[in-house]
Write a protein that binds this DNA or RNA. Structure first.
Lengths: 206, 206, 206, 206
DNA sequence: GATGAATGAGTATTCATTCAT
DNA sequence: GATGAATGAATACTCATTCAT
């Protein structure tokens, strides 16, 4: 849970490389070289390549852990709270997009023996908070009731990753000619699109 | 383009394994064993592991190619046509979910030297057809105009894959206790959710 | 001994490739492709790669077989006959330089199970003829007697191959800027040098 | 340039095997086994089989580097100096005959991507020294002038290798019934023959 | 605590050859 | 007689990990 400087250095490089070229595609040599540490150090610190990934999950999953609560307790109209919620989710995913991408890659990998419990638990918590909020809105008649509440999160995150995972395609489609422009688009127009999507689904009237 | 029986056998096994344990994680030995062919045969038929993946893309991408047109030409009200369109997209993705998953994994892999042109072209075509349809609906006043038309596809596909890529999580969340139940859910409730999402975004009145 | 057209085609390609990239470095696939025949044909015609080399030796060794005799029987002064002899040797080696090079490579290869008897026999014959001629000259007082007669051949052939095997080096050293110029040099100046060398060794007076 | 004990062990085995069965014919497994080291060690130490050969060249080429100078500076009559020079060349080649043989094999191999610059440079240096010595002798009227000075080296080395590369043939021809006898012959009679050859070419009077 | 050296198991690919047709 | 398809064995090399120091 508490990593020293060199460990964090390794974790960051690993996160980058795992996201860019996959878990299997990344060799510990590559990580070691990029992080400017000895190869043996990775086994020494983390035990194995798989345990390094688990350490990375632990390191990042803490960050996934919600500021959702902080939004929830605010005294805002449901609509605005909904926007804030979506915006927060996108921001959080964006911040940890690399680790999320790795998880998306590896979570269903049948061969890997990696402990995703922390991730799953956190995901369940998040969705629980959202579900409760939606229920509340529905009870108060602000939100529609004929909605697959449990799937709302999938739409938010899924839309984000569909664009992120097809970055070169969408850069061309949306005429974004730099990585900065793309990144900026993700945090403005794409976020807006997702907010609009969720609001359309939930709000009774325009 | 025209593969013999053994080649198709290899392609199918490769598709399955690539989707399950990743491109790097899958060894040609593994494919050969599972497909019950000699290891050398894969190099013999496809040249290399990477070219095998390219062959798989070519083999499947033809199938991606649209029945979209067939829906477009039907004389249906816009709303129903929209539902049909989404349903078709989900079905098509579902049918080729494995290859799509591989693409999602590998497309942004900076190290891989694989030709995704056919995929990109097909994706562009699909989105073009959808965009044209939405434009038409907007012109006729049936669809709203304040919508990120180019992102609609991402929401459809993204939602699907977010659930599919987190299958164990959603199986538990949605209390689906078998793979069949999950599969069935994808093609009914999930499809319905996505249809509803897109309609909410586009339709002027409930 | 009597090869058909396709076999000769294969032999010629094999000779070229064996000389250029070595016996081990040359694959039967490469030969087959270059000779524009089916891969299986080589095994079919010659039995194996090693037997192909043996066939090549048989095919060429016949050509080594002397016109030496024809020079011997001519009624020429010893000095001129000596020049003619050296010139003939160089020409003959040059014509079959590729096969000779292969032999030089492979003859001492301890692992290879190739029959070099024909080559050895021919070599012995050649040297025998030369030795007899030199003996004759010595008896007649034209040639010196304090000479390692058995090594004369090695000096002739060795000088040739030392230049040929270091072609790029000697091209630069001798300022020969084309393969034609090099080839021409081998047959004029180099031949002359070798003639001069042998004459210096054998003749009593300048 | 500075190799540890195990590296030298590998280099020596590689030199032997490359000379005996060729570069392509020698597998890294074979080298590893003979040198009694792990296969991976060869890649670990040298990077690749080709780089191993380059390392070998570097390791040996230093040894090629002349004691020629030491002979040159001695205050000896030209004739004796010439004998000493030839003797030195033969000795040096003999000592490194294996590496020289490999070079003779591989230098003109069009496919190989190996850096022979060090070898070429050393060869040029050697020939340069010899050429200068011969020029000096010619100026002083001791050596003949109608000689292909640049080809003298080829005759020395070529004669040596023609015998060495046909060892089984010459063993029989010269009735040398052991490897020791052959080796001894190379350093006495053969050397003498080469000395005599060069002297015959260069000296004005008997 | 940290690491250079070392390794056994694994990788994709290529090889010469065989065999059914 | 000739060949496309197929294969077991071998190739060089890379892998994550271990261990002596």
């Amino acid at each position: 849970m508490d990593f020293n400087e060199k460990q964090i250095q390794i974790l960051k490089v690993a996160e980058k490389l795992f996201a860019e070229i996959g878990f299997d595609g990344t060799s510990v040599r590559h990580i070691a070289k990029e992080a400017d540490v000895n190869v043996a150090m990775i086994s020494y610190y983390f035990g194995s390549k798989e345990k390094l990934l688990e350490a990375l999950l632990l390191y990042r999953v803490a960050d996934f852990k919600m500021e959702l609560e902080t939004v929830m307790v605010q005294n805002l109209p449901h609509v605005e709270k909904l926007d804030a919620l979506v915006s927060l989710m996108v921001n959080r995913i964006h911040r940890n997009r690399r680790t999320h991408k790795i998880i998306n890659y590896e979570y269903t990998n049948t061969c890997r023996q990696i402990d995703f419990d922390a991730y799953v638990e956190q995901k369940r918590d998040s969705l629980g908070i959202i579900e409760a909020f939606v229920k509340d809105g529905q009870n108060k008649g602000v939100f529609k009731t004929d909605v697959h509440t449990k799937l709302l999160g999938a739409t938010v995150i899924g839309t984000y990753f569909q664009v992120y995972n097809n970055k070169p395609f969408y850069k061309k489609l949306l005429e974004l000619d730099s990585d900065e422009a793309f990144e900026n688009y993700m945090l403005t127009s794409l976020t807006q699109h997702i907010q609009q999507t969720i609001k359309s689904l939930l709000l009774n009237e325009k």
